[in-house]
Design a protein around this nucleic acid. Structure first.
Lengths: 162, 162
DNA sequence: TATTTAGGTCAGTCATATTGACTTAATTAT
DNA sequence: ATAATTAAGTCAATATGACTGACCTAAATA
């Protein structure tokens, strides 16, 4: 296919538009995650710690299994991160009603860090989103949701009590 | 602040909505990047290789420096990935007009892989996006673009000839 | 009682990224 | 013409986040 034909072909133009979306996702997600990194670095934590703190903060009495299902990592991967968070008193572990399970809860220290980290992203998103109409925001959210795999949509709905 | 007060406070409700957006970004981006991984794994490449192939494919005669500016990684990090891609003949390197610089180009093998990887994401996004109205898609793209840091917006515009 | 489930652990490996120090060759500025 | 800057590369050490595989314990369930 020649360059001219490419430009005249409506399907090709669509591909260019899709490629732009791929890049938009790449650049925007990178900048979205960049925020909390500075704070995390100071206390020798990484993004994995942030994610654990985030979901433990979100769901009271989250079990290890539930957390693994959300994060979709192995328990060996979670182990190191979680142990650090427990050792440094950001998270406390208690035994569940089913005594095989463990319940994870943020300490005040953990909650403070969670607030601090999430606030950076919240502030940033708020600032951006307030510039747009309800319709734009709706399109944004609807399409993001549609981009989630079915099984993970269920997970998302679950943790948002839908 | 009590739970009841939280629910009655319009600012708090907004924070819940923002948190949902944070999660939407997390889940959707994860599923968005998951696609090409299976193919990459078979040939012992990772996401970093995909990114290099993507941007080298996008911009003819890209230099090392330009690539580093887009990817925002160190040259030591790029080095390993790029050397593998050159050694396995996905990318060819030639000397630029400024003889200090090097120009990167995809070989046919590289182009084939790029097509294959990008097609997975393109197909997926197309399938999703076709279900939505122009207005929704517009909101989606506008807000994603707004989420990019100013300096990276310039980068995005540059590689999209704006 | 046997099986499954939740959680943990030890060991080894890989991919991606970092910082720091240093080199070479080419271009540009003084 | 010399000095400074730039583009690219390299060596070494380190961190982080992830993986597989094998194995264990204790509790709940079939």
């Amino acid at each position: 296919m020649t360059d001219l034909n490419k430009l005249l072909n409506p399907l090709f133009l669509k591909d260019i538009e899709i490629k732009k979306i791929i890049e938009l996702l790449f650049f925007s997600y990178r900048d979205f995650t960049a925020g909390p990194d500075a704070i995390l670095e100071k206390i020798n934590f990484g993004r994995a710690h942030h994610r654990v703190i985030y979901f433990v903060g979100k769901q009271k009495n989250l079990t290890i299994k539930e957390l693994l299902l959300i994060l979709q990592i192995t328990k060996q991967s979670l182990s190191r991160v979680l142990n650090q968070l427990v050792k440094e008193k950001y998270i406390v572990v208690s035994v569940g009603e089913d005594k095989r399970t463990k319940k994870l809860t943020l300490t005040q220290k953990g909650q403070d860090l969670e607030d601090q980290l999430t606030m950076i992203q919240t502030k940033r998103i708020k600032k951006i989103i307030n510039k747009f109409s309800e319709k734009d925001i709706n399109g944004f959210k609807k399409i993001l949701y549609a981009m989630i795999e079915q099984k993970n949509k269920i997970k998302f709905d679950e943790i948002n009590n839908k």
